[in-house]
Amino acid sequence: MEQERRRKKRKSKKKKGFIIALSIVLVLILGIGVYAFTVYNSVASTLNRTHEPLSRTKSEKRTEQVNFSERDPISILLLGVDQRGADKGRSDSLILLTVNPDNQSVKMVSIPRDTRTEIVGKGKEDKINHAYAFGGVDMSIKTVENFLDVPIDYYVQVNMEGFQDIVDAVGGVTVNNTLDFTYEGQHFAKGQLQLNGEDALKYSRMRYEDPRGDFGRQERQRQIIQAVIDEGASVKSLTNYGSILDAIGDNVKTNLTFDEMKDIQTNYKDARHNLEQIQLDGSGSKASDGIYYYHVSETERTEVSNLLKEQLNIK
């Protein structure tokens, strides 16, 4: 009964109409949405800069490589990396998408950055976002795969420091702010805000003044990403696609090729109509050394894992 109640609670969080946060790949990387293929050569050139394959050809949790033409369900890990200067950075935003074109749905799990789990390849437990600092995208993917016990087929990495260039390239963004706060000398009042790149980055980074902590920050990051997508797809961006593609080329990495993105657009686009956001319930506490961790129970982890396996048609 309790499991069924929690399952129904999660279903109530479904949202219609927001594209598969593939959005970042299919709209951001492909530039300006509907007319992207009219600037095919510029887009293809940009994707040569964004393409960065993994050290493996497929997940160890897959027996066969996914086949787009057969509409196999796929998973994509979105990483928002806070990289400043020479610092390699940490993946402060981790979102796992599982896309099933047959039932036309997407399940999106936001993984709190402070989640304590085994860091695969390091032989110890730590915050999940530290996996990126230890071993880059490859270690992050293996750690998330181990944590949720599902394969990760693709990734999209966005440099949050350079993300302000993308915001500026689309002419700024509009967001609806629900929390009055000040961060790094900038005041953000409640209500509709017009943000340039620098302010958008500050808006998406604050978490300590937010009563929801990292969950509040994740929501603001999703607001900025969706706002960029909306602006990037607007008519006014038609005259500025060069700057947009330059900003994407400088700040986005993915193991998806241009041909794979086109195949996804062809075979998976209808899944955008049914997006369910899944929250990993847990509790936070400080360890004996004073470091804060977010703890997800084995019961919760298993329940979310089973939901994702069902979505990926994994038995």
Rank of each mutant, 00 (worst) to 15 (best):
E2S: 08
Q3W: 06
Q3C: 07
E4Y: 09
R5Q: 11
K8R: 12
R10I: 15
V25F: 06
V27C: 05
G31W: 00
G33A: 04
Y35A: 10
F37D: 13
F37K: 10
V39Y: 07
N41C: 08
V43H: 01
S45M: 06
T46L: 01
N48P: 05
N48M: 12
H51N: 12
E52T: 14
P53W: 10
P53K: 11
S59V: 06
S59H: 05
K61N: 10
T63Y: 03
F68Q: 05
F68D: 02
D72F: 03
I76E: 01
I76L: 15
G80D: 05
D82T: 09
G85F: 15
D87R: 11
L97N: 04
L97A: 03
T98M: 08
Q104N: 06
V106D: 00
K107P: 00
K107D: 06
M108P: 00
V109K: 00
I111G: 02
R113Y: 04
T117R: 03
K124D: 03
N129A: 08
N129R: 10
H130R: 14
Y132C: 09
G135I: 14
G136F: 11
K142T: 07
K142E: 12
N146H: 15
Y154K: 08
V156W: 00
Q157F: 02
V158T: 01
F163A: 03
F163Q: 01
Q164C: 03
Q164A: 11
Q164H: 09
A169K: 00
T174P: 08
V175D: 04
L179Q: 05
Q186K: 13
A189H: 09
G191C: 11
L193E: 03
L195V: 07
G197E: 03
E198S: 15
K202L: 15
M206I: 10
Y208H: 15
E209P: 02
P211D: 09
Q218V: 09
E219H: 08
R220Q: 05
Q221S: 10
I225Y: 00
Q226E: 14
S234T: 00
V235D: 02
K236A: 11
D246L: 05
I248T: 06
V252R: 00
N255R: 07
L256W: 02
F258V: 13
F258D: 10
D263A: 13
D270P: 01
D270M: 12
N274S: 13
L275M: 14
L275V: 14
I278A: 04
K286S: 12
G290V: 09
Y292H: 09
Y293V: 04
V296R: 01
E298C: 06
T299N: 14
T302G: 06
E303T: 15
V304F: 07
V304E: 02
N306Q: 15
K309C: 09
E310H: 07
Q311R: 10
L312E: 04
K315T: 12
